[in-house]
Design a protein around this nucleic acid. Structure first.
Lengths: 337, 337
DNA sequence: TTGAAAGCGCTAACAT
DNA sequence: ATGTTAGCGCTTTCAA
């Protein structure tokens, strides 16, 4: 199955392979007659240009990469949707990669995409990835950090103010009269999570009277939520928190499900709020209150920042979106959604 | 920012560029001393091999592609997870692409990956994509159709028996005493959906007494479910179906949420079952019954089929998984999950 | 063990 | 308008 190249096309069309290339890249500079012949040749041979040759010659591809830690978290998937849309509009393809929460896989993809000379990378990570991105950038591949404010002024980033988000969440619970709060999530070394906790702590401090327990957790998934539920349900009811702030909606959803099954009244016994406001938060057993950050908009902003970076424009590099409280039944009771 | 290539590394290390290449590909055949020098040179220059050159020379990459119609549907995302895991185990990278339910985007990615000479493609599609895959295959790139049984014996595919799934769903509703069933989904031109409906119809026929209304829908999303809810709620209660089979869980979830909000009792007034059994089905307002097809296992099987195809092994090309009924409260009432 | 050299498929500058 | 040609960065065969 000898791959057919421009050479074969050229022979069949009775032109030089340079002309075939011209046809592909500057069709206007080829006579109608040859265009016709070349088209037919391409057609009958089923010619598909080999990208390696083109890219080797040109030195750059027409794709960008989006590396996500966990595609099966709808939060990252929705961002991907926005990225895809915006990129398509600018004629760019998007290669999505799933690092599966593994630092090693993340590194592998970072390097792979650099080798592939993508135009730029969008990187959502739970790790401290900024150093690595700095190195990549220095070698010529720009990137945008997604979901995490960059520390360096040179590193573009699109993020949500997680301290503000954490504050909003805890403040909401406190305003509802809750005093024994718990924050569920971790590892706290992850910037986004540490920030959320910091925000929550600030709200606690401000309240004067409430307390905050930190329940550490490494799996920020529905399964992780189930695990916490188990631990919580083993406690006597009086020792359970009356207000829970989960570091993301997945945890909250897993927890919520088990609490309800066990007969714990939500929000009466325990008020629960999540983070991210994924689409499924609204349709959960008890509609879940959450802290909303933009999703598609996030992806779109990231691509636009990257485009500016590629073009060498000097846009504001650090875009920070404000989080928003979405109160539903899991905190404010049956009345509202 | 002149990209550094093997040449620069070679000069700095005081060897020929061929030796650098040897070091990269057959480190054992290079003397310890030069290895040392080359390593240092790579280190200080920050050399990252250009994939285009390598690929041009070798004629093939080390990546496979997974094209999904809709990453933000957790069903496809979970498959992606399985794909990533299995591929990593075989040293392959996965490029995920989101065609965003657009035939044009799908075509674009099909071609892009072919140009990139990926080792193979996994394609989940709502379209009739088999002809296109046949053409791609003929030119040397193997593929596995995911979620849709291939008609051609030459086209590997991993799928679920959707006719059986549809049958199970309708049979379940009928067994619960429901007689006025509705199937929600579409366009029915999509094979998977048509099959589910066919299965449901068969169950209806078998029952003798039940009827099946088909409510067509083009958006197989939560929003689509909301739209159907609106239409259903406008009917007098007596004219509503008493058993609803939604073509996927997203639709079911959207519908369920609005029905419950409107005071419709589920499952008493309307029993509802979805399809796919995404992770969120279990934690919805009323835990959703669904037809379960394997997820990660699906992705793993797809990669393995592709590997066999690449290796030229003659495995059974059509892998069909049996669907499974998962009964939860949305059909069997409060007692069970 | 190392180096020299050819050539993968393509683009574009240049010559015609 | 078309053809000729050099060369992108790499791997590998072959020779030393």
């Amino acid at each position: 199955m000898a791959r057919v190249g421009m050479r074969e096309v050229a022979v069949l069309a009775g032109v030089s392979h340079g002309t075939v290339s011209h046809y592909l890249n500057h069709p206007d500079r080829v006579s109608a007659e040859k265009v016709e012949r070349i088209q037919r040749a391409i057609q009958t041979l089923g010619f598909v240009p080999n990208n390696a040759g083109r890219q080797l010659r040109l030195g750059s591809s027409t794709a960008i990469a989006y590396i996500a830690p966990d595609v099966s978290n709808p939060y990252f998937a929705t961002i991907a949707e926005g990225v895809e849309q915006r990129a398509a509009k600018s004629g760019l393809s998007v290669f999505i990669a799933n690092s599966n929460r593994s630092r090693a896989r993340e590194d592998a993809y970072l390097e792979l995409f650099e080798r592939h000379q993508v135009r730029g990378m969008l990187v959502a990570s739970h790790e401290g990835v900024e150093d690595r991105l700095a190195a990549v950038r220095q070698r010529g591949t720009p990137s945008v950090l997604v979901g995490q404010a960059a520390a360096s002024p040179d590193q573009p980033s699109v993020s949500v103010d997680d301290v503000a988000g954490g504050f909003l969440a805890a403040q909401h619970l406190i305003g509802l009269g809750r005093r024994r709060l718990a924050f569920i999530g971790g590892p706290l070394g992850i910037r986004q999570l540490g920030d959320r906790l910091d925000g929550a702590s600030a709200a606690i401090r401000e309240s004067g009277s409430a307390t905050l327990e930190v329940i550490n957790l490494t799996e920020r998934t529905i399964a992780g939520g189930h695990a916490v539920a188990k631990a919580l349900l083993e406690r006597p009811a009086a020792l359970r928190p009356d207000g829970v702030f989960a570091a993301n909606d997945l945890i909250a959803l897993g927890l919520l499900q088990d609490l309800v099954l066990a007969g714990v009244r939500v929000p009466d016994d325990v008020a629960l709020i999540g983070y991210d406001d994924i689409e499924f938060a609204a349709s959960s057993i008890i509609p879940l209150s959450s802290i909303r950050s933009p999703h598609e908009a996030f992806g779109i902003a990231a691509v636009e920042l990257l485009l500016a970076e590629i073009a060498g424009e000097s846009a504001e590099r650090h875009q920070i979106f404000p989080p928003e409280l979405v109160a539903r039944s899991s905190t404010v009771g049956g009345g509202r959604r």
